[in-house]
Write a protein that binds this DNA or RNA. Structure first.
Lengths: 341, 341
DNA sequence: GTTAGCACTCATTTATTTTGAGTGCTAACG
DNA sequence: CGTTAGCACTCAAAATAAATGAGTGCTAAC
């Protein structure tokens, strides 16, 4: 849909003003604050057109206009100019994400989540890397007692995962050492998906003597790695109280219950085909957050896209700013994760 | 303070009714629903006395009475009879906490948290075991690359903790093996607090050749174990919307911001001298939750008190039921953790 | 000591009015 | 023809007023 120049300006004015004030925008406001050389009457005519096109809507007859989902979409795609953080701000963010004594993946991710909500003032969510896309760098068995083994898997993406295994028969250090060598030898470098029947039977052939204990180990480890294990970190969940659209108790509740359900949330924030995505209102498919917008970006470790960072907030969201921030932070994260590995 | 029998009955009636209805309780209601053989006028006289004693208060002149903090306290300490779950319910809870393919500490705790909020309909919080009170059962170093080591610590309380270490100089498998043996030998059985200068220098004397790498390891591991690392799990945070006292946006917000701050929350739910504790309104010390009550109990692993389970909700809380549930679940948890180790 | 009776209080509910921001339409203007 | 001033009309929200009713404290009688 191609809009005339003036219509674009008016749509932009309405979206901008509505984002700022949360009040429906009237023709007089636009004529005074944004387009001083056109009269309210003319603006009214244009607004009527924009409403016919489905880009604006009117809460009730005697109110101003607010953008519709499609209106926001048009604004995001065709009108807005992304506002990136200033170089100083970028430096500050880098600083916040790099300084730390212990270089733990988890800590960087937690800190990123907090940072995101602090800067944007919306609710932020970060998905931790999933084991499934990573390949195994090292698999180590630790003997804890005669019948208790802990398997520790370290991936090329820096994830460390522990699996507790009850052994069917007693194990000693020698056995563990042998099992360790074989498993490590056969599994390192493989992704979870690579581990199939052929690999397993190959290992099994090297393990005639331990077949029982081996199958206990492999099944538990395999199950544990296969399950979708990426966690989600959340920050700034109470930020929504700053936005008048959530003055209504039920609205706030609906939002927060959605947020509380980690399954739903993970679903919404999981990566899709794009490495960057803005989804507005009904676009995000879930009835419960049909008046929210979500902006998300992916991040990489070891050149693999392993997780996403994002924010969720009211549709009346400062898209230009949020998009700039998310793009920048996802870039910075990629840099950080390049260095720390 | 010793109360007459009738006063006790009236206080009990008021607390019971207020817990149920959230409405100030008037003399007529009591005469009709609870003490049918006394007239409202008499009850009014008694209520005036109870108010003088500081056990009741009146929101405004023409309203009924509600219990004060002290009133609740008297009710909890002197009047209420704990309502324990039925044997069937107990069995159900046991079932929920025991059935699982992989016996992971984390999963049991997560499930407990969910269970608690589901049953009580309040917000539940569970503190995971802290490494600090545990002793080391096994410490294993894993070589990930020339300069990357992961230390895995398994405690007698079933905690598994990973620490990433950047080695100052390259390590090979032989070195790791040797370090492993020495560390394991010297550290297992010790608690974190046991690890002091003497132990460290003792190990150091066995490690002349690796002194540099050793100090890298010991400092990072020690730091990591020393820090207070118990996490807190939360469930049912949106349950508060079911209670009319949180109809007010600001009240809800205050509660939820408190809940969001893991530091504050951990503080409130950490164990104190008692293994069971009810804290009402102002008693819990924090201005932000002065109209909440907290009930918490501890749980043990390997005969050590390692964490707490609890719920937080409005002062108008069904204490008798919540206390019964928490006591039961903490017992069940202790049983479960006895078996799984 | 207990209770019926009554005047009084005050939050809550319901109804009514006022206000004002905003619109659409018409007619005039350049 | 596009633009704009003018005006009647709409309707949510705010302000005001009145009605309701649950509950109290006090007094006097049982």
């Amino acid at each position: 849909m191609e809009l005339g120049d003036r219509k674009k300006k008016i749509l932009k004015a309405i979206v901008t003003d509505y984002i700022e004030t949360a009040e429906p925008v009237g023709s007089r406001t636009i004529a005074k604050k944004y387009l001083t050389d056109i009269s309210p009457a003319t603006i009214r005519n244009e607004m009527a057109d924009l409403e016919d096109l489905g880009l604006l809507e009117q809460p009730h007859t005697s109110a101003g206009r607010i953008p519709s989902d499609r209106g926001y979409r048009y604004y995001v795609d065709q009108i807005m100019e992304v506002k990136y953080p200033s170089p100083q701000e970028i430096e500050k963010i880098k600083y916040m994400l790099q300084i730390q004594t212990i270089n733990e993946l988890d800590k960087i991710i937690k800190r990123t989540t907090k940072l995101l909500s602090d800067i944007t003032k919306y609710t932020s969510a970060v998905l931790t890397p999933s084991v499934r896309k990573s390949s195994i760098r090292s698999l180590q068995l630790i003997r804890v007692s005669d019948y208790d083994i802990v398997a520790v898997v370290v991936t090329d993406t820096g994830i460390i995962k522990n699996v507790v295994i009850k052994s069917p028969n007693a194990v000693d250090d020698a056995k563990i050492l042998k099992l360790n060598n074989i498993l490590n030898d056969k599994l390192s470098g493989l992704t979870i998906n690579d581990i199939g029947l052929t690999v397993i039977s190959d290992i099994q052939s090297h393990m005639r003597e331990y077949s029982e204990i081996f199958s206990a180990i492999i099944s538990v480890v395999y199950e544990s790695l296969k399950e979708d294990d990426s966690e989600i970190y959340l920050e700034g969940t109470t930020n929504i109280f700053d936005y008048p659209e959530y003055d209504d108790k039920d609205k706030a509740r609906r939002f927060l219950s959605f947020i509380e359900d980690k399954k739903l949330l993970t679903n919404v924030f999981s990566e899709d085909e794009n490495d960057f995505c803005v989804s507005i209102g009904c676009e995000n498919g879930n009835e419960k957050i049909k008046d929210c917008s979500i902006v998300k970006a992916t991040y990489n470790i070891a050149d693999k896209t392993v997780g996403t960072i994002g924010i969720i907030g009211p549709k009346r969201m400062d898209y230009a700013r949020v998009v700039g921030i998310l793009k920048s932070i996802s870039n910075i994260l990629n840099e950080v994760f390049e260095k720390t590995l």
